[in-house]
Design a protein around this nucleic acid. Structure first.
Lengths: 344, 344
DNA sequence: ATTAGCACTCTCCCTTTACGAGTGCTAATC
DNA sequence: GATTAGCACTCGTAAAGGGAGAGTGCTAAT
């Protein structure tokens, strides 16, 4: 069977109506609201075909139809019209650039809040990824007699800092020497490449100050793993209650548990680093905990280097066209702002 | 009317039963389960008295009784027996000290997770407060040609760092001079005391490098306000669904909205900084959003200096004795561990 | 090919009914 | 005088019944 022009029109009408109402859509509704000069009976026939083709489904015999994931996929790929921002949305997005802070974490947190506020979905924003970023400089700064700050400057301007306990009999000159060594060996490497193997000077030093050097190296190599845990910002987790499909307490709980599971979120968002927006609809998602949801993912960058991901999660009947356009604009705005701040 | 021994026993039985079941408690249940050699009819009479005195209430005429906030208050003050930790709980608490990290934020985040895990309530942990802590040293460290790191070492060993943009024509010597100036004026002051008024050298410098100096001072004074926003760690927000009183979707949503409102949480937890555990029951709470909940609050310290607050939030029929003992032990463990790490 | 008409299905919501848990009161008992 | 058995009464809940309404699929007419 072919997906003719009229079938497409009807499918589009069903999808749009269902997205905005959340109720199964009947033939009469379509004939009235989206009247295209054909009677409900004709529409019924077409809908029956669309069901056979896997684009529509019926919750029960005497109900209207709802779109399948396949239908949403077709919709976002072919049917959906891009939508402009409302003045209010544009205004909120502009707020990203009006921050008092220059700390990337705080900017990102605010992005999460703005995203969830203007879309009414749940937002997820990942902090800058350290796994692709190159180390530029490593510096040990004495804080007091017991601690030094391990400071890492990276190609994305991000600073990773950790407190390191220093042994007793150690002076500032020694710290500087180690700093230079570290910078020498690991400059232009990633955190994953940090390794003692070919760093002969460091190996010697490891003999003398075993615990100290080990702590430093651990801090460097662990930074990716640690970031993973802590650098996920959520916004509007309670927004999910706005949707009738989540009035069921069990579904709502499962959703919230999912949002607390940082590992799944991290893995999900790490898979994609396209420049443009990526949409994952319902069962297209490999995590079964999320097969009732759709995710719209975007990225933010410094210059042309993708730095991190963000996304909006909601029911599969998400307002894709709104969400996609907002995600694009937010991505651009954040990237521009960050580039302005951090690009050399 | 007097609260005799028998009335107390009955009240305690009602409270304990209601805490564990969540169902209104009837006279027969008490006679059977907590049999104290008196008949249901006698218990009914006593319960009727207890209701008159404001300790019990009936959801409706033909239901059992549930304890009032006043009853819980009496219970936690007088009736409750302290309970020992189970081996499993003790084990989980010990995990706090087995961390790889020395970053206080990560430790605190894990504390939030452990608290909610072992209690099954929602945990809130506030990061270290900056408003009581004294500045020890301020240091500007050049990162590259555009940015310097503003580093503040405080009496609680906490380091507050911010990126500051530096003007073009500036050398390392200048940064050092400013650092010394800042340390000179603000050493042993709090962040709230940072002010340009009596800092004559700085005023002069402000003329020359207006934006730069202003940025530094802003970063210092804003640090408290900024911390407020970002330094609240939540654990187990979805735990609230475990309780039948939150099966109502509206209640659950209100609770979760509350947990997203960092301002309320911050204010609530800032009020108390007792050494011992503080319990706020239902309507004792000044925020009406929380009058269905109880909060058990504790603190953690470095040495004998209280550093931050933490708490567990749940329905008023909370397992107070369990929660209080866990809160005490966690407080001790965190404090010991932090003291070990940071105390000079 | 399209459409009007109609019987049929299924959900939702309302009412009714029955049941059970628990109470308060009264009168008997220790 | 305190305690208790007995009993009528109340109220919430769960199950059962009964439209109403929305929507379908099929058939026959256009």
């Amino acid at each position: 069977m072919q997906l003719g022009r009229r079938k497409l029109q009807i499918l589009q009408a069903v999808i749009q109506d269902y997205i905005s109402s959340g109720e199964p859509v009947g033939s009469r509704t379509i004939a009235k609201k989206y009247g295209m000069g054909i009677s409900p009976a004709t529409i019924r026939n077409e809908m029956s075909d669309l069901e056979e083709m896997g684009y529509l489904q019926q919750p029960h015999t005497s109900a209207g139809r709802i779109p399948s994931d396949k239908a949403y996929r077709l919709y976002v790929d072919k049917l959906m019209e891009t939508r402009n921002l409302t003045p209010d949305e544009a205004q909120r997005i502009r707020e990203i650039c009006n921050q008092k802070t220059t700390e990337i974490e705080e900017i990102i947190e605010q992005v999460a809040n703005i995203l969830s506020d203007i879309t009414n979905y749940t937002s997820v924003v990942l902090g800058p990824r350290l796994n692709k970023v190159l180390i530029r400089r490593i510096e040990l700064i004495a804080i007091d007699r017991q601690y030094a700050l391990l400071l890492v400057v990276t190609s994305a301007g991000i600073i990773k800092d950790t407190l390191i306990r220093i042994p007793d009999n150690i002076d500032a000159g020694y710290l500087e020497r180690i700093s230079n060594m570290l910078t020498k060996y690991y400059r232009d490497k990633t955190f994953a490449d940090v390794n003692i193997k070919h760093a002969t000077d460091l190996q010697k030093e490891l003999m003398r100050q075993k615990e100290f050097i080990r702590n430093i190296l651990d801090a460097l190599t662990n930074s990716i793993a640690n970031k993973r845990q802590s650098d996920i910002y959520l916004g509007g987790t309670a927004n999910i209650f706005n949707f009738p499909e989540y009035q069921d307490i069990i579904k709502a709980r499962d959703f919230l548990n999912l949002m607390e599971n940082k590992d799944i979120l991290y893995n999900l968002f790490s898979q994609y680093e396209e420049d443009d927006v990526v949409i994952v609809i319902g069962t297209e998602n490999e995590y079964n905990e999320m097969q009732d949801c759709s995710v719209v993912m975007g990225t933010y960058s410094i210059g042309d280097k993708v730095l991190g991901s963000m996304g909006l999660i909601g029911p599969t009947r998400m307002e894709y066209s709104k969400v996609v356009s907002i995600m694009r604009h937010v991505g651009e705005s954040v990237s521009n702002y960050l580039t302005l701040l951090f690009k050399e």
